[in-house]
């Protein structure tokens, strides 16, 4: 059609095509047919391209009207809402990891974890206390202290040539199994809890 040869019209339509990109395909098609037919008709009636395009309004305005319509029923949301803040940022993930295994890195890692924990706004103050006190050093601390504790228990092992090593003790094998489960489960539970309750601004909303 001859109107498309007009550089002003083709520029207008190119902009319309670009700005309509976010609309659902059927709406895009509908709008495209309406606007091109409108321009054709205006020019066929002897109006100037300038006048027709000026009264139509910019492609951006038209697309905004299509996107800003009140939504009736389940239609795809065209305009992106402001992205919500993530519950856990990298710094919160780092805090939770460092609290558990950071002590391996010369204690400094665990201290860094504590600092990250307390400067985050994702937790309430008592949750931060919980994270700090669950066990100094979390997993690594537990493993270290419990491991060294076992060595001092009254367990003796004997080995004879040609036979497997036999250990005798005060039933500490059973006790330590239960103990391990408890002391390991506690840091895991606290970590899971802290990861689940973390919310932006939670720390500022009072205790």
């Amino acid at each position: 059609m001859k109107t498309y040869d007009d550089p002003q019209v083709s520029e207008y339509l190119a902009r319309l095509r670009t700005t309509m990109g976010a609309l659902p395909a059927d709406e895009r098609e509908d709008l495209w047919m309406s606007v091109t037919a409108h321009i054709d008709e205006g020019i066929a009636r002897g109006e100037s391209v300038d006048a027709v395009l000026a009264r139509l309004g910019s492609p951006e305005e038209i697309t905004a009207a299509a996107a800003g319509e009140p939504v009736d029923g389940p239609r795809p949301v065209v305009v992106q809402a402001a992205r919500p803040e993530p519950r856990l940022r990298w710094r919160e993930v780092a805090a939770l990891i460092l609290l558990q295994i950071g002590i391996v890195a010369w204690v400094v890692g665990w201290v860094a974890g504590v600092v990250l924990l307390w400067t985050s706004n994702r937790w309430r103050w008592w949750e931060k206390v919980l994270g700090t006190l669950v066990w100094p050093g979390g997993f690594a601390g537990v493993a270290f202290s419990y491991g060294s504790g076992i060595e001092h228990q009254g367990e003796t092992c004997t080995s004879r040539p040609g036979q497997p090593e036999v250990c005798t003790g005060s039933g500490s094998g059973v006790l330590s199994a239960v103990g391990w489960i408890v002391v390991l489960a506690l840091p895991i539970a606290v970590t899971i809890y802290l990861a689940k309750v973390a919310r932006p601004g939670r720390g500022e909303a009072g205790s």
Binding site: E27, L31, S34, H38, L56, G57, E61, A65, E69
Partner: peptide
């Protein structure tokens, strides 16, 4: 802007 009526008609 007359063009903004077309999206309305579409809806």
């Amino acid at each position: 802007s007359e063009g903004t009526i077309y999206p309305l008609l579409s809806r």
